[in-house]
Amino acid sequence: MLETRNLTKTFGKFIAVDNLNIHVQKGDIYGFLGPNGAGKTTTIGMLSGLIRPTSGTAIVNGLELSDFNSIKKNIGVYPQESNFYPNRSAKNHMLLFGSLKGLNKVQALSESVRLLQLVGLHDSEDVKVGNFSHGMKKRLGIAQALIGNPELLILDEITNGIDPLWAKQVRDLITELNKDGITIIISSHNLFEIQQICNRVGIIHQGQLVAEDDIDLIENNIETESIITVGIHNLSLKMVERLKQMKYVRKVEQIDGNKLLVYANSRHDIRSDIIHGLVSVGADIFELNEKSRSLEDIFIHLTT
C-alpha cells in the first residue's frame, strides 16, 4: 500500500528524516512512533505533499510521491498544526474540501452529511468552528480527511491534546474505519494509544527507523532488558553470586532486605534457570515475578 524508499529530508545541515524505509500493508493500522522531534511530522508532511523530500521517494498504491497529484485522490490527510477557518461552519468546510476533492455540489453535500454524522458532529454542522472544542476539531479533521473515500488515511498526532474521553472516541472511530477497509497511518508519541489500536508499528528515532514489525512480534524480536523480582527468605551473598554467574543475567540488585532484582536479556526466559540455580544453593524462594514487557519498554530501549 505504501512504502518509503530512502526518504530523506534535511533542513540546512540538520537531517530531520534519514533514509527512511517504512512499509505499510493494505488493511494495516500502522503506528508511527517516536519521541518529540524524531521526524514523525516531517515524514507525514512528505507523505501528505506538504514537505518536499530532499531525496528518496515513497510509493503509494504503485505511484511515486513525485506524482502526488495522482496519489492525493486516494489518500486522506489530517496533518498536525493544521487548522480550520474559525469563522466558517463545519458544513461550510466540508463543502469546500469536498469541492476541492472534485465532488460536485450534490455529492459534496451528501458526503458532508454522511461524514459529519460518522464523527458525531451532525448536530453542530452549522456552528462556527471557532466555537468548537479541541476534540470536535479533531473529529472534524478526521471527517475532512475522509472526503472522497480515501483508501489510505494519514493522521498525525490525532489524539494529542484532547481529553481521555474524546481520545477513546477517536480511537474507536479509527478502529471502525479500519474495519471498513481503510488503511491507516497514525503517528503518535502515545504508546498506550498505539498499543491499543495498531497492528503494526514503526519506531523512528533521530530521523531513522529503528524498528518496524507487527506489534506483537516487535516485543519478541527486539532485545531489551527484562527485570525479574526474586524473593528469598534465607537470602545470602552466595545466592546473589550464583545469580550473577548465570548466563544472560546482566545485573543483580538487592531491594527490601530479602528481595532481588535480576536484570536479564529479554529474549531468553531464564525464570526456570533462576529457580534451579537458587534451589541448588539452598534458597527458600517465596516470590518470582517477571515484569511483562510493554511497547513502552521497547520504545525507551530503542530511543534512549
Binding site: 505533499g49 497529484n69 492525493k72 496533518p79 477557518y85 474540501f97 476541492l100
Partner: peptide
Amino acid sequence: ESGTIRLIIPKIK
C-alpha cells in the same frame, strides 16, 4: 500562519 493551508495543499495542486 493559521495552518489552514495544511488542510488545502494535500487536496489540490
